[in-house]
Design a binder for these strands. Sequence first.
DNA 1: CACGATACCTAA
DNA 2: TTAGTTAGGTATCGTG
Length: 901
Amino acid sequence: MYYQQQQSHPFLKIVVALPTMVAGCRGILEKGIQIDGLGMKNFLTYESNVLFALRFMIDCNVVGGNWIEVPAGKYRKTSKSLSNCQLEFDCLYSELISHAAEGEFSKMAPFRILSFDIECAGRKGHFPEPTHDPVIQVANLVTLQGEDQPFVRNIMTLNSCSPIVGVDVMSFETEREVLIAWKEFIREVDPDIIIGYNICKFDLPYLIERAATLGIAEFPVLGRIRNSRVRIKDATFSSRQYGTRESKEVTVEGRVQFDLLQVMQRDYKLSSYSLNSVSAHFLSEQKEDVHHSIISDLQNGNAETRRRLAVYCLKDAYLPQRLLDKLMLIYNYVEMARVTGVPLSFLLSRGQSIKVLSQLLRKAKEKNLVIPNVKRAGSEEKYEGATVLEPKAGFYENPIATLDFASLYPSIMMAYNLCYCTLVTPEDVRKLNLPPECVNKTPSGETFVKSNLQKGILPEILEELLTARKRAKADLKKAKDPFEKAVLDGRQLALKISANSVYGFTGATVAQLPCLEISSSVTSYGRQMIEHTKKLVEDKFTMLGGYEHNAEVIYGDTDSVMVQFGVSTVEAAMKLGREAAEYISGTFIKPINLEFEKVYYPYLLISKKRYAGLLWTNPDRFDKMDTKGIETVRRDNCLLVKNLVTECLHKILIDRDVPSAIQFVKNTISDLLMNRMDLSLLVITKGLTKTGDDYEVKAAHVTLAERMRKRDAATAPNVGDRVPYVIVKGAKGAKAFEKSEDPIYVLENNIPIDPQYYLENQISKPLLRIFEPILKNASKELLQGSHTRSISISTPSTGGIMKFAKKQLTCIGCKTLLSNSDQTLCSNCKGREAELYCKSVSQVSELEQIFGRLWTQCQECQGSLHQDVLCTSRDCPIFYRRKKAQKDMAEAKRQLDRWSF
DNA sequence: CACGATACCTAA
DNA sequence: TTAGTTAGGTATCGTG
């Protein structure tokens, strides 16, 4: 920490017998000890907060996912076996040879991967609890990493189960036998990695707690250490990036738990993280979603119904494996472990900073430096971030060129040698009197020495990461073998992410080694650079300077500027863009580089961080429609808004057909108000970011989560979950949080939704923001007119006061109220019986057909055309349509029944 | 009804 | 032995 003129200092290295003693030792030294002749003295400690496993790996030069050689003759068989491993021997740790992940050693190990899923029989209306409810099935798939089919597929069932092709069905008479069989299976298969969906929070703890309830003492020995019991601990993880999440920490020695739910939540921003929704998203494969209350019925049926359950259970074990393969997670995660040096398990259980710290510790060791364990200072400190240039909002119908700094923050840190060990304290600035040519004074006022005096560790780490990335990308181009390609692609991704998170690490005031002098210097250089770029572009590309038009920077954020060169073709904009990038890059120190990347044409700039446009990287045709920040890319909008905005942008930007966009809006509004909208389009989801009491204001999704907790605590959303809801009709002037409701509940109880809310609070503003730059009187054009007057005939409410209201019949022909409930038609419509009867009949048959089609579709999804559909998936549009069709059909049949002759 | 505070999510 | 950063838009709630 800080630039040290003196090349080396004496340090005292303290070695203790057990890892746990490090903390105690550190405490004593920090608090201070009495030394004869010196009095009370306290000490700054160094590297006293490094996790033991990481310490060991760093000292032995071992990284996560790394190959280790135990040289012949350097080990001997253990005298007494302590493990369940296939090979067991003793070896001195210093004899291990750690191989860098290159050549032969970059290959992935043939990990044995177990994917499993359990089913439990909850009591009616309750979510299963391990203290009451039995485990009735466990499905297992075992796959060798790199192979595309599992080599073991089995299901352990309580009670009989009809055979399933290609699956080893193992039936048992008692639950105890099921659990013991699974435990034995684990020992026999000896998996390296255990995967599944939500296994860390549900399946694993459930099995263990259930075994404890049943008193199966031998069950919780699932790891590789003989006689070591699995331990469970409640854990919460909380960070700005990943949010707060409660989970369970299950210790299974020697096997990595790789919960696909955690992977999804960390790596992808989705509106729903149910296995069903995720599978649909990544695998285009739906899965039936059987409500937990039905599972008991299937279990209590016969061998056939249990077989049905088994098929379902197997699919839940199969999908995580498919996701693992499809997203190449093993490659990406192992490469991340190799690049950053942390064990694989840290990547899912810990945050970003441990990865940077691991690299820092390794590099420091190499340089013979030690890292101080600085006190956690006040975390309130803030520093200024990046500049966002004031946007000149509007619809641009000429090409806009985009200039970007490549890896801006890493290159600033490299260019100006910003590091812990190059920072000069204000005191030292005065004392040391360093010559100006040896230091950089940053725009934020800090002083760092240049690399001739001391090369920074951070810049060196960054250089290595970026060079390695370049190499990985080059190798990737040459690679033929798909496995090799996967490894390299995973590696270049890991390298990029790692380089980008170094800056964040220095600014993390609650982390291990904050250094705001570095982070605020980085951003101050960044601010200076974007302003400089804007100025250069506007000064050079002028008519006075011999160009056809005056260039104008219309927007820019952090590391990019959008330039309107005034030219009318994409090609011309690209040419000028390249020229500008090259010219401006020349004015910066290496390795800072401004690149021309792309052209937007046309370009709709709404405000800071919000824009849309067609993106061109070559002049022949556009690559895609690119939207930033607006509703189409946000998860807290209902599909109705997302689809509507996407479709309008498509029509405006691609088709260049504004009238058709307007017509589309009108049709959609009309459909909404006529109650013709699919409920699935109206579902809004928002993340539950804290526990109930911590909220200071009431919000729709929070109050709904509370109400759901009262209905069924076990299935209600938890911290970190996303809560889907719809807004239903309520009292006049009721707040949104009073009108939010669970979509499934709405469907089952036939509660009318509030179309007006969707029109006024969901659709209108986003639309106006898009149309206003394009259309005069946008509000009048879109939101007023006949299409908004078609007031809905809502489905009658069954709850509340409506229970006491008697339903009055209306004329089948014209819907006027009838005084006499025996009547079918009013006096006006008398005489049209034949026509209207035919209409009723055809309505019923039409709806029957629609329903039939949807039903078949669901049957296909569940994989059998001979059985009832049980699926109630909140994430599946077909489910909502099927339910609606069913209701409509029933209503039509009721109408038909009124024609009793 | 205006306005600040809170909450959420995104850009970079 | 818990946590990468700041900037910014928008909706909604609560209060004066």
